[in-house]
């Protein structure tokens, strides 16, 4: 199975998987992509751990908890080029709406006072399996160095395609006007 093709890894942190859907939206060009690269750690192929060094890592979502931070750190370690894919990775996105609300209020709403909450003990879940939340949602580039940012919610498939093919063929990432969209 092992080839000398460059590897691409992807992850969704505090995101909705919409950006991953957009990767799939490149449609039949995915066949061309497979010719160019192998996928490493990614929900696309369900590889859970890195198998080696990757040329490109695509990160969807910002960091809302310690698990996100750990994954992002791992990607930084294994990827030559790291890309923030979409609004949440770039600015925190919808999850960052909580950044104006103290964490305690978020917890109280989620575990005590929310309309559908049933929690007679009133305790916050503390199982070590549940990652601790960060004090706010961080854009990825405020946690580790990110090399590129592809805007959009999600970034259009054409944007992802244009950026990936440029990177994999050693060309500069230059997006035309219509491919830079924040929504």
């Amino acid at each position: 199975m092992s080839t000398d093709k460059p590897k691409v890894a992807t992850a969704s942190l505090a995101g909705c998987f919409g950006c991953h859907m957009s990767i799939l939206d490149i449609d039949d060009r995915i066949l061309q992509l497979i010719d160019l690269v192998d996928f490493d750690k990614s929900p696309v192929d369900d590889i859970k751990e890195f198998t080696g060094r990757c040329a490109v890592g695509l990160i969807e979502g910002g960091c809302c908890n310690e698990e996100n931070v750990r994954v992002l750190q791992d990607f930084r370690k294994h990827c030559d080029v790291l890309i923030s894919l979409g609004e949440c990775a770039i600015c925190g996105g919808i999850p960052a709406m909580r950044n104006n609300v103290p964490l305690k209020e978020c917890f109280d709403e989620a575990y005590r006072n929310g309309p559908s909450v049933h929690n007679p003990s009133g305790e916050y879940p503390s199982d070590p399996e549940i990652p601790l939340l960060l004090n706010k949602v961080y854009p990825c580039h405020e946690v580790v160095k990110m090399d590129y940012h592809l805007q959009g919610c999600p970034p259009p498939a054409d944007t992802i395609w244009a950026a990936l093919t440029a990177l994999l063929t050693d060309k500069p990432v230059e997006l035309p006007y219509e491919l830079i969209k924040y929504d």
């Binding site: 923030s84 609004e87 770039i90 600015c91 996105g93 919808i94 960052a96 709406m97 104006n100 580039h141 990110m146 590129y148 940012h149 592809l150 805007q151 919610c153 997006l175 006007y177 830079i180 969209k181 924040y182 929504d183």
Partner: peptide
């Protein structure tokens, strides 16, 4: 400010966003 284009009704007609597009801003 807090500019979340993805759920802003003004998106696409917003001059701040448009200015950022024109200037090719990918991240602040």
């Amino acid at each position: 400010g807090n500019h979340y284009c993805m759920y802003c009704e003004k998106s696409g007609n917003c001059e701040l966003q448009a200015m950022a597009y024109r200037l090719s801003i990918m991240v602040p």
